[in-house]
Design a protein around this nucleic acid. Structure first.
Lengths: 331, 331
DNA sequence: ACTCTTCTTGTTTACGCAAACATGCATATC
DNA sequence: GATATGCATGTTTGCGTAAACAAGAAGAGT
């Protein structure tokens, strides 16, 4: 910076002003500085700036298990958006979804110099008003609203309702459920909504089978479920498990959708090309990511601005996509 | 830090020594300092440290399209490994796989304070010895070796060979190919290997159909391919497109594997649960990520150490997993 | 013509840490 | 017992930037 200042014949402070946008610099001096910068290939030192300002231009993202398609979509949306807003993104992958680990990850990130943190799916069910950071704004991407931090997510209940209603309207006596893992908020909420809807409709509530989101667990679950001949409709908590359900049905000689209707959740890109094409609930995770990011940046840039108590939480509505894996039950 | 020093009754420098591991500090003073740190909740300021040392403890990852499962696996391996080694990870998502954009992303990252960069799939085919950064070590995760930077990737040729050999050995007259997009190195190499193998075996080389990795493109490709009744074997460049191929076959009334054998590439977690379970080439992307990371960290920590010219490039061998989507052709 | 504003630019300083150098003390060596 | 050696600790300084304050110049108003 000193070199640039000397070459341009101005003070370092003026260079700083030019670099940081329009303080008040004459067009003439601005030009001088800019040409000097270009000539010297000047690039600001981020560490020095961070030291001087206390801001880092970085957003931290905490996530379990990046390989879950769901999470990746959010991360991608956050990364893209953050870049566009001039922030970089640091990611921390947490092994176990325990409060301790998440807290450690958040701490690692704040140690590490971030202006804000996004936690994808808190999963910590036992702490009603989890406070993960008090030094930096933090938002949570989750479908559970009861966090102390602002939360954005999917309206899982609406998604589950779309799926269950669809199956009931087709005439199925009841709907069986292959649930996601117990520790997951989305899984819990989908399951709870499914159960509530059946009860409200006065239908039998069969015990759900719990999987772990993987195709294999869906397959195993379906093998157990389909031992019962009366099962005509299955709502799987995600598309991956639905794939396993379809496979099990094929092996057991149950025609889909003739003998068995299957609904998934997510609308992954392969869903339309399964055999049969999968009826599923499409969720726009990128929208969730974008909302989290916007909110976080707002909090970062106007510290006292968005007075977001635990109330601020909005949920994106998913949408049922009907394909060929559902039909009225055989009589 | 000053507060800690005062409380512990030592100089700031001694605190610094304690923080940065074992310079030479008496156990007694170390203890004093540590208790003072704990008492005050001291946490080092990364920006200040970076300013003083010129090192950041951060690794940058440049990737196209995070939603490609392939890339995510590498990112995840890098993130996990980096965390374990005390580094944080910054990701930059690049829209278009052009040299300009990649260069900009790398620059953004180095501006941003990283000690090294990993670029996932360079894709820039027109520059034979692409030099992306001269200020910071950079390694590339790609299956093309001709980069100026150290490169780690999959042995695509071996994977393609396993697939094609398998189909030929089953007795198919030739193998059709649904290729990945032209700009992708893995796609190019799989395709080239496929072609080379057919030629070597003296078989007809049908024109490949090019997709974009998506299930839909695989579906479209297969519709075209299967218009020809004589097609008995298809090698799809990834599992997603293979899903589309399976779907098209089902719609056209071609039984798999009776009428048509299909091989994929990747072994995604749903592959065993497709109808029929997909024969595919399993690749261990996490291993690629780990190798990249190790090499990068070695370069960072011993600047003159690994004298990695363009020669250093190692490729992980993929492995054929035979399932139920392949069989000898009907006669 | 004079003061009062307003606007641009310069000067000083602090951000928090670690590198380099300096010091003092204890132990080893003859 | 005097000098040399090594080790633990302290002091000084600089990393590159922006904030806070200061100063000078130009224009507005009376």
């Amino acid at each position: 910076m000193a070199d640039v200042a000397k070459l341009a014949g101005v003070s370092g402070q003026t260079v700083s002003r030019v670099v940081n946008g329009n303080d008040r610099v004459t067009a003439a001096t601005r030009l001088k500085v800019e040409t000097a910068m270009k000539q010297l290939g000047y690039r600001a030192n981020i560490a020095a700036r961070a030291l001087a300002t206390g801001r880092f231009g970085t957003i931290g993202v905490v996530t379990f298990n990046l390989s879950a398609v769901l999470n990746v979509r959010i991360v991608e949306a956050v990364a893209t958006g953050a870049q566009a807003r001039g922030y970089s993104v640091s990611i921390a992958v947490v092994d176990a979804p325990t409060e301790k680990d998440v807290r450690a990850a958040v701490r690692g990130l704040t140690d590490r110099a971030v202006d804000g943190v996004i936690v994808i799916e808190a999963r910590v069910l036992d702490t009603p008003h989890l406070q993960l950071s008090d030094e930096v704004p933090l938002v949570i991407a989750d479908s559970k609203a009861a966090h102390r931090h602002p939360t954005f997510g999917m309206d899982e209940a609406a998604g589950a309702r779309a799926a269950v209603d669809h199956l009931l309207e087709l005439g199925h006596a009841t709907v069986h459920h292959v649930a996601g893992p117990a520790g997951s908020n989305p899984a819990q909420r989908r399951r709870a909504a499914w159960q509530r809807l059946l009860k409200r409709a006065g239908r039998a509530i069969p015990p759900p089978v719990v999987g772990d989101w993987s195709p294999r667990s869906g397959y195993d679950a379906a093998l157990r479920l389909l031992a019962d001949d009366s099962v005509t409709a299955v709502f799987a908590a995600n598309d991956q498990m639905a794939v396993g359900v379809l496979r099990a049905a094929a092996e057991l000689g149950r025609r889909v959708p003739g003998d068995l209707s299957v609904v998934g959740f997510d609308d992954l890109d392969f869903a339309p090309f399964l055999t049969p094409p999968l009826t599923t609930v499409r969720q726009d995770l990128a929208a969730v990511g974008r909302r989290c990011l916007e909110h976080l940046i707002a909090q970062i840039e106007t510290p006292a601005g968005p007075v977001t108590a635990s109330g601020t939480s909005r949920f994106v509505r998913p949408e049922l996509v009907v394909r060929a894996s559902t039909a009225p039950p055989r009589r």
